[in-house]
């Protein structure tokens, strides 16, 4: 086994096409998953009856591997009359999976805004919409952007699993390169580098979004805006006396 750069340049166009697929799939499923997650979190708040149903949904989608979920959707779906093509299955699968995590992020985010603020705003004569738009939304966004960034990076990496249902994304193209060249070193190092670079881009984008959203907020609200400053940890989502440490899903930077 020796390292062959020429091999990489030969396959570069295909790997980059794969990377394009990976990027598009991640983007679409992050956006769709965030909306789905928001819908789930809102439904849970509005209708108590849905609380248990959403909780079960979240437990199932967070408690089983994405790979199995995709297998079930793709190979099991047709026997239930649901035949989606591989790319659609991948997007739907990632959205449903990501939605479970996003809904938890939003649920925590809602509790980031103390109820007293809403009461105060209302007593000052602001309508419901304005209260939400001017008081609650900016703080909610500030609270959810870091964990959403982290979850986006996780979805970027998890999208590699779509290769098993024949979606021609980066990992799929790399597997083809491996079977055609019988080499493992160059393809796998190249793909590691590409994912790493992509994750770094998402991480930086997240920080930019965060900076833009919190520019007007001073001083930094409850320390949840930055990943790296020492105060960054206390999570207002948890009980006041119970500081909470973010997990893989909630805390993921890539610096």
């Amino acid at each position: 086994m020796s390292f062959d750069l020429a091999l990489l340049s030969t396959f570069a166009p295909r790997l980059l096409t794969g990377l394009g697929w990976t990027a598009s799939i991640t983007l679409v499923s992050v956006i769709a998953g965030a909306f789905w997650g928001l819908a789930l979190a809102l439904a849970r708040r509005q209708w108590r009856g849905l609380d248990l149903a959403v909780a079960i949904y979240v437990a199932i989608f967070r408690g089983t591997p994405l790979l199995i979920q995709l297998f079930l959707l793709y190979y099991g779906g047709p026997s239930l009359g649901l035949t989606l093509d591989s790319t659609t299955t991948g997007l739907v699968g990632l959205t449903l999976y990501g939605g479970a995590y996003f809904s938890e992020i939003f649920r925590a985010g809602f509790t980031a805004v103390p109820a007293g603020q809403e009461e105060a705003a209302r007593s000052l004569g602001l309508g419901r919409w304005l209260t939400f738009r001017l008081i609650q939304l900016p703080q909610l966004l500030a609270a959810v952007i870091p964990p959403i960034t982290n979850q986006s990076i996780i979805l970027l990496k998890e999208s590699a699993v779509l290769s098993v249902i024949t979606v021609p994304e980066l990992t799929f193209e790399t597997t083809r390169m491996v079977t055609e060249t019988f080499s493992v070193l160059e393809p796998y190092l190249a793909i590691a580098l590409l994912y790493w670079a992509a994750a770094t881009v998402v991480s930086h984008a997240g920080r930019h979004a965060e900076a833009a959203l919190t520019r007007h907020m001073s001083p930094p609200a409850s320390g949840l805006i930055s990943h790296d400053t020492p105060e960054a940890i206390s999570n207002p989502a948890a009980n006041k006396d119970e500081p909470h440490v973010r997990s893989r899903a909630e805390h993921h930077t890539c610096s």
Binding site: M1, T175, V178, T179, F182, S183, V184
Partner: peptide
């Protein structure tokens, strides 16, 4: 997909 490359490796 891992078999022949793995043999070479």
């Amino acid at each position: 997909q891992g078999i022949l490359p793995g043999l070479a490796a």
